[in-house]
C-alpha cells in the first residue's frame, strides 16, 4: 500500500550558507493511510520543523517528501497537494487573523479551494468542530483559546483533506480545554477517515492519540516505536527511556 506520507533522508536548515543551522538531520519515516503518527521530543528537537518543511513553509530542505506516492519539490505546493494535506498550528492566538471574522476565514478558505455552496459548508464545518452557527460572525477576540483552535481546525478541514498535520494543537491551551480538543480530533479522525501526523512534547497526549511515534533528539529521529511500547515504558533507546522517565516524574 502506498504510504500517505513518506519522508526519506530529510535535512532541514535555516539561515545563509555561512551561518547555517541544521534543524533536522536525515529524518526518515512513513505514515500509512488512516494511521495516527506522533513526533515527540524536547523543545528544539526539530519536530515542528519537519511539518513546516512538508507543507512548504521552509525553503531550505533536501531529501525526499512524497504524499500518496507523489513527490514534492522546493516550497511550491500545487492545488492537489493543498487539497490533500492541511495543517493545524500550535498557537490559535497567532494562527487566526485578528481582523478576520470566523465567517471571513472559512469563506475565503472555501473560495481559495474552489468549493461552492459556502453557506451550507460553513454551517457544517462549524457543527463538525462543535461550534454552533452563532459563532459564525465573531472575531477572534470574541473567542476563547479552545474556540479559536476549533475554528483553526474547521479551516484545516474545509478542503476535506486526507492528511492532517497537527503542530502541538493543544500546548497553547488550558489543561481543561486540551482534553476537549484532543477528543474532538479523535472523533474527527474516525468520522472523516483522516491520517494524522501529530507533533507534541507531551507523551501522555501522544499515547492517547497515536498508533506509532518517533522520538526525536537534536534534529535526529532516535527511535520509532508503537504506542504499546510507549505505554509499557519499554523503548529500545536510552534517550527514549529518559524522556519517558522525565515525563512520568513530572506527572507524579
Amino acid at each position: 500500500m502506498t504510504p500517505m506520507l513518506q519522508v526519506s533522508d530529510m535535512d532541514v536548515w535555516f539561515g545563509p550558507p555561512h551561518a547555517r543551522v541544521t534543524a533536522v538531520k536525515g529524518a526518515t519515516f512513513s505514515v500509512a493511510p488512516g494511521e495516527s503518527f506522533g513526533l515527540v521530543g524536547e523543545s528544539g528537537s526539530g519536530k515542528s520543523t519537519i511539518l513546516r518543511a512538508v507543507v512548504g513553509l521552509i525553503p531550505g530542505w533536501s531529501g525526499r517528501i512524497a504524499v500518496e506516492g507523489k513527490p514534492v519539490a522546493g516550497i511550491g505546493r500545487d492545488r492537489a497537494f493543498l487539497k490533500t494535506v492541511q495543517m493545524v498550528f500550535q498557537d490559535p492566538y497567532a494562527s487566526l487573523h485578528p481582523r478576520h471574522s470566523v465567517d471571513r476565514v472559512l469563506s475565503e478558505t472555501l473560495a481559495l479551494q474552489g468549493l461552492g455552496d459556502v453557506d451550507r459548508r460553513i454551517t457544517r464545518l462549524l457543527e463538525d468542530v462543535g461550534l454552533g452557527r452563532g459563532f459564525r460572525f465573531r472575531f477572534p477576540h470574541q473567542l476563547s483559546g479552545g474556540q479559536r483552535q476549533r475554528v483553526a481546525i474547521a479551516r484545516a478541514l474545509a478542503a476535506e483533506p486526507r492528511l492532517l498535520l497537527l503542530d502541538e494543537p493543544t500546548s497553547a491551551l488550558d489543561v481543561s480545554v486540551q482534553a476537549e480538543i484532543l477528543n474532538l480530533l479523535k472523533d474527527l479522525r474516525a468520522e472523516h477517515q483522516l491520517t494524522y501526523v501529530m507533533v507534541s512534547h507531551d507523551l501522555a497526549v501522544v499515547a492517547h492519540m497515536c498508533d506509532r511515534l518517533s522520538v526525536m533528539q537534536a534534529g535526529r529521529i532516535v527511535e520509532i516505536m508503537d504506542a504499546a511500547t510507549l505505554r509499557a515504558g519499554a523503548p529500545r533507546e536510552d534517550y527514549s527511556r529518559a524522556l519517558i522517565a522525565a515525563s512520568t516524574w513530572r506527572r507524579a
Partner: peptide, 17 residues
Amino acid sequence: HADYIAAARLQGAGPAR
C-alpha cells in the same frame, strides 16, 4: 511570518491576496 499568513498560504492564497 505570522501563522495566519502561513495558514492562508496553505489554502493556496497567492501573494497579491
